[in-house]
């Protein structure tokens, strides 16, 4: 099967219309390399930071210097102080712990949200059974479940994972239900008149058509996973970026706090990129229809 037409015309009996609509209006955005414009704001922030520290515009406690944060990062990762502080050399442990919890929370929470969200969006009876309860739970801040999670599971991974899974689930769930419900009626009718049974309509039409919304939900869910996990680590776990950040605050080591924020930001960004890569690959058709790129 050739993917490209051998001629620009259809068969002889039928003159194909010019393919003007087929040609993209804009050439694909030149690569996805670093855009210098994107560096302007971080540059401004760094300069403002340096100026504020240099001219003593903020107290040392509130605003650590760039170099202090740099040394702290070095110590955190490589233990250059020889184990002087509680965080010296613990970076890899913190990173792997946080990363593991985020990934498990995100994967399990999203999977549950997709399964339950599709059932609720597609089958009226599941909607009647599950949706009212979920809607009652939604306005309760997910973090408000932390005390119960700690009492129930004790300290450590279980309460943090529970909270992350729960938070991701609720965030993604809404988007899955909406995605399934917003699939065009005519697309479903087209499948039915072609002989599709209910199950085929769901798996071959509704799921692919709902995928853009589902993946957007997962992208929001990934960010949410970090947010809620950091909070859970502050209170319920003895390791991880959230733990280090909060513990440092208790010692008023704002240089460590900033170092922690930078790490969370960096890895939050990386998990987001991961979802975006999946979106780009799975939604090439939707991007092409809209002539856009994520």
């Amino acid at each position: 099967m050739s993917r490209m037409p051998t001629t620009s015309e259809g068969s002889a009996t039928f003159r194909a219309e010019p393919l003007s609509e087929a040609a993209p209006l804009h050439p694909p955005r030149a690569g996805r390399r670093l855009d210098p414009l994107g560096l302007v704001l971080p540059g401004v922030v760094l300069i403002a930071w340096w100026v504020a520290v240099h001219f003593g515009l903020a107290t040392n406690v509130l605003l650590p210097s760039l170099s202090a944060v740099g040394w702290t990062l070095l110590d955190w990762v490589f233990n250059v102080s020889g184990g002087r502080y509680f965080f010296s050399g613990t970076w890899w442990r913190d990173l792997l712990g946080s990363l593991m919890r985020v990934m498990v929370g995100f994967t399990v929470g999203s999977a549950l949200a997709i399964v339950i969200g599709v059932l609720v969006g597609w089958y009226r009876v599941f909607e009647r059974i599950a949706d009212p309860t979920i809607q009652i739970l939604r306005p309760i801040p997910k973090t408000a479940f932390l005390p119960f999670a700690i009492l129930l599971f004790g300290l450590g991974n279980p309460p943090a994972l529970f909270l992350t899974i729960y938070g991701v689930f609720l965030t993604v769930y809404i988007q899955v239900v909406v995605g399934v419900k917003l699939v065009s009626r005519d697309l479903k009718r087209a499948a039915l008149m072609l002989g599709a049974r209910d199950r085929d309509v769901l798996f071959r039409v509704v799921l692919p058509a709902a995928l853009p919304n589902i993946l957007v939900g997962m992208r929001v869910g990934a960010a949410y996973a970090w947010l809620i996990l950091i909070l859970a680590e502050m209170l319920a776990v003895q390791e991880g970026f959230g733990y280090v950040l909060w513990h440092a605050y208790e010692f008023l080591r704002m240089d460590v706090v900033v170092a922690g924020m930078l790490c969370i930001g960096l890895f939050g960004y990386l998990t987001d990129r991961l979802v975006v890569i999946v979106m780009r690959r799975k939604l090439d058709w939707a991007q092409a229809v809209a002539e856009t790129q994520f």
């Binding site: 050739s2 993917r3 259809g10 068969s11 194909a16 609509e21 087929a22 092409a288 229809v289």
Partner: peptide
Amino acid sequence: GLAGFEGHRPHEL
């Protein structure tokens, strides 16, 4: 009349 367009997706038509 669409010989040669088998691999095209709808938005390319």
